[in-house]
Design a protein around this nucleic acid. Structure first.
Lengths: 337, 337
DNA sequence: TTGCGATATGTAAGCGCTTACAAATTTCAT
DNA sequence: ATGAAATTTGTAAGCGCTTACATATCGCAA
């Protein structure tokens, strides 16, 4: 790359010191208007852009926050990041995104990588991870926010919703319709507290109604359509097939719809299907999915504000918990007579 | 954040100079093995991580490449980025992602933002953008790659496929089945050369068969299911409805399926529907979509290699063009009798 | 052993920026 | 007008790292 103009060039052209240029750019109100204009003009004339390395080195800040999400392949994280990023951009902060592929080790690596790049703050999904990671964060005193979850400790900043209660809503609704034979295709719960909480919410609510949920009616699977088709096929060919199948997310629910269709059965006449997330897919499939609407965008926006607030003030803000809504669509109906 | 150990601390502990530490870390083979071990040990003991700012400032490199994509909401970009990122990670390079929301101005802003963060290279989607942007890039001599397209000039590095030819494949197939009344719901072509090329490919192939494609049979719409439903509804209620509807991508195709279903018609009996991209959605819907499989992952991987090669050697590599496959699924059938 | 080329290490000068602190200038009440 | 306070600007010391160059050490042929 060619040599770029430096702050010194701007200073010379504007006939001021580099300190003044720096101030004119970073805290304009600490500089007289006429000087500010002169600097602006010089900046324009030279096409000057501050060098990131120099800035980071001198100030100790990078104006960057990092996020480690499980995958970009799921619209739900993509969407939350989108609004997070939009919000950060307006505050002059850049977002660095890394993915863990739902692998705790990989997540840890990524956290380290982001830290070594000097991120001023970090966004992580969920709560379950090695204590080592939290120690690392606390050790460096890096502000961080946990999304998609509600941190139990109160010692951490979390911005999320109650996965368990949300899942319970679905069950309650199905119970009211008269369903008694439930099945659930959950996400992999290992290292994934959101998936676990959803299962727990379902089981607890069923227990209140005197029902249980055990294998083979409770299965874990990855968030993959084809794999889910296989699992669902097994469920509906059970001697006593469930009348309603709960899913870990909408993608799995789409897989179930497909399996049911392939089996020549109909949703919701023969079996009801419930999703989670309310991504676009939920209305693209037929029948449209009854699901839980998760406030991704609001989580993203809120995370941006709270984390930046923390970074600026040094004070950890209080956690936020959003409500979730049950979205009733055609995939849920009364059980077959 | 607390004070982190610096290279000086490591040097002192390992009883060598900072230069040696730097070398031991960055070009291990230029340091005797025993010294290297001593350094490694000190690094471990202190938990040292190089400071990004210092590194960037001193070396003039950031080991970062930037990508500006239209949106994260579309699985197709997400997926390409995923493999791009995986590949870059193995090379010790970080990926910085920004989105433009299909807005050229916004894209330009993002390019500037990435440049000012000192990215060593840049990845852009498509070819159509203000000359100003290319001048900026050339002016700074920043290596960049254009994805999803085949740069006509030969003066630019492109890694993509022939959108026009791919779209033509779909048309050819439909023609062979006997379709004569075509409609197309294209993406917004303004500032989007991929969308435009797909339209062009369709029209050219139709022209060869003595057919034309004009409004109202040719409509542009955003990649949004609900909006597409509206457009499709209008198409199928035309006095002479099309027997096949081509779409700008799979998301739009899903919208068409929905509209057809709502109209009480059936795909492909009453009308065939063709997508583009082959995202997961294509097999989640019913009937599954006949579509074009785009080599996202391969594009991502290749982009990583070529761009890094360019950065390292200073030599612009040759462009790469991938083939695309037509994936035949249930949404395409013969026209109604 | 000696000496020489090759290899390994150290020295020190920045890279471009921010920010205490000092110095200069302006403002304003008297 | 005057001087103290407030505001604006300049001076200069780093921030942590890389790297050209200088110096020291090593391996090995004679």
């Amino acid at each position: 790359m060619k040599r770029q103009p430096t702050i010194q060039d701007v200073a010379t052209l504007a006939n001021v010191s580099t300190a003044t240029v720096s101030r004119a750019l970073n805290s304009p109100d600490r500089v007289r208007e006429t000087t500010r204009d002169a600097v602006q003009q010089a900046v324009q004339a030279l096409g000057y852009t501050p060098d990131f390395g120099g800035q980071a080195l001198a100030s100790g800040r990078t104006n960057t926050i990092g996020a480690v999400i499980p995958t970009m392949d799921n619209a739900i994280f993509a969407r939350a990041l989108q609004s997070l990023q939009e919000e950060l951009t307006t505050m002059g902060v850049t977002l660095l995104v890394a993915t863990s592929q739902y692998d705790p080790e990989r997540e840890e690596q990524q956290v380290r990588a982001l830290l070594s790049r000097g991120v001023d703050g970090l966004i992580l999904i969920g709560q379950a991870r090695a204590a080592r990671v939290y120690e690392l964060l606390e050790g460096r005193a890096v502000p961080y926010a946990l999304l998609w979850t509600t941190a139990p400790s109160g010692q951490q900043l979390s911005i999320g919703f109650d996965n368990s209660a949300a899942a319970a809503k679905l069950v309650t609704q199905a119970l009211q319709l008269g369903h008694r034979r439930f099945a659930m295709i959950a996400g992999i719960t290992k290292g994934n507290d959101r998936a676990r909480a959803r299962v727990d919410g379902v089981r607890a609510t069923l227990a209140d109604a005197g029902l249980t949920l055990e294998p083979p009616y409770l299965v874990e699977g990855s968030y993959d359509i084809e794999q889910t088709v296989g699992i669902a096929r097994a469920l509906i060919s059970l001697p006593e097939p469930p009348t309603v199948i709960l899913c870990g997310n909408d993608v799995q629910a789409a897989g179930v719809l497909k399996a049911v269709r392939q089996a020549g059965l109909s949703v919701p006449r023969d079996v009801s299907v419930l999703g989670f997330d309310d991504i676009e897919l939920a209305t693209a499939v037929d029948p449209a999915l009854t699901t839980i609407r998760v406030p991704h965008r609001r989580m993203g926006r809120m995370a941006a504000h709270l984390l930046i607030g923390w970074i600026k003030t040094g004070q950890r803000p209080d956690s936020v918990q959003f409500d979730t809504d049950l979205i009733w669509r055609a995939s849920l109906g009364p059980p077959p007579a």
